[in-house]
């Protein structure tokens, strides 16, 4: 093997990747009558785990209860859970095919790894909270609701970009 084969292949053109993504979303609408999602699957997983540890606690909490279903089958038997499992597999496949599998930390040159990981944790937590307040994340709200001209999704989308651009300056050292 020479070095060319080892190096990661370039990313696809964003418009063409976006077109592919749009067709996947369209297929979901046509086949299932629903769009894509991500955060919902993790919420189901969290609710199931809490229910395992403390059943009454989970059942008394309206938030968990909504994700636990009626108890007739495991709450993990859920459309979004299977979809997100697919996301992991699809991402992995694409990564392998493009030689992009690499244990690394994504960061700019002006920040150390520990700080980057702390920020990743904080950002993840904020996203978890925000997604539940907004009833969806970038997949469930912005992509899905956006293409259905959903009022709340467009308000949400504008606010995601607005919020991000508003604070980007303060976190510039992390990325550039």
């Amino acid at each position: 093997m020479n070095s060319v084969e080892h190096s990661a292949k370039p990313y696809w053109n964003p418009y063409l990747s976006g077109f592919g993504l749009g067709l996947v979303l369209l297929a979901s609408f046509v086949i299932m009558g629903r769009g894509l999602g991500a955060s919902g699957a993790f919420t189901t997983a969290v609710a199931t785990a809490v229910h395992q540890v403390a059943p009454t606690h989970a059942e008394n909490n309206a938030f968990y209860a909504e994700y636990l279903g009626d108890g007739s089958r495991s709450p993990l038997k859920d459309w979004l859970v299977f979809e997100v499992l697919g996301v992991f597999v699809g991402g992995f496949l694409s990564g392998v095919l493009a030689n992009r599998l690499k244990l690394t930390v994504e960061k700019g040159p002006r920040i150390g790894k520990p700080w980057r990981l702390i920020f990743a944790f904080i950002g993840g937590a904020l996203m978890g909270i925000g997604a539940k307040i907004a009833l969806g994340c970038t997949s469930g709200q912005a992509l899905t609701g956006g293409s259905l001209l959903n009022v709340g999704s467009w308000a949400f989308m504008m606010c995601v970009f607005g919020g991000a651009y508003a604070v980007a300056y303060f976190f510039r050292k992390q990325w550039i």
Binding site: L36, A38, S39, F42, V84, V87, F88, G90, G91, S94, G95, E106, F119, A120, F121, I122, G123, G124, A125, L126, M127, G128, I129, G130, A131, K132, I133, A134, L135, C137, T138, S139, Q141, G152, S153, A155, F156, M157, M158, C159, V160, F161, G162, G163, A164, Y165, A166, V167, A168, F171, Q174, W175
Partner: peptide, 25 residues
């Protein structure tokens, strides 16, 4: 709620670097 959640997600995006779907990948 969707405005508040959206703003929070935007801030989280810059700090964390991902949104839930992309973080899986």
């Amino acid at each position: 709620p969707q405005i508040v959640g959206g703003l929070l997600l935007g801030v989280g995006f810059v700090i964390g670097g991902y949104c839930p779907g992309t973080s899986c990948v």
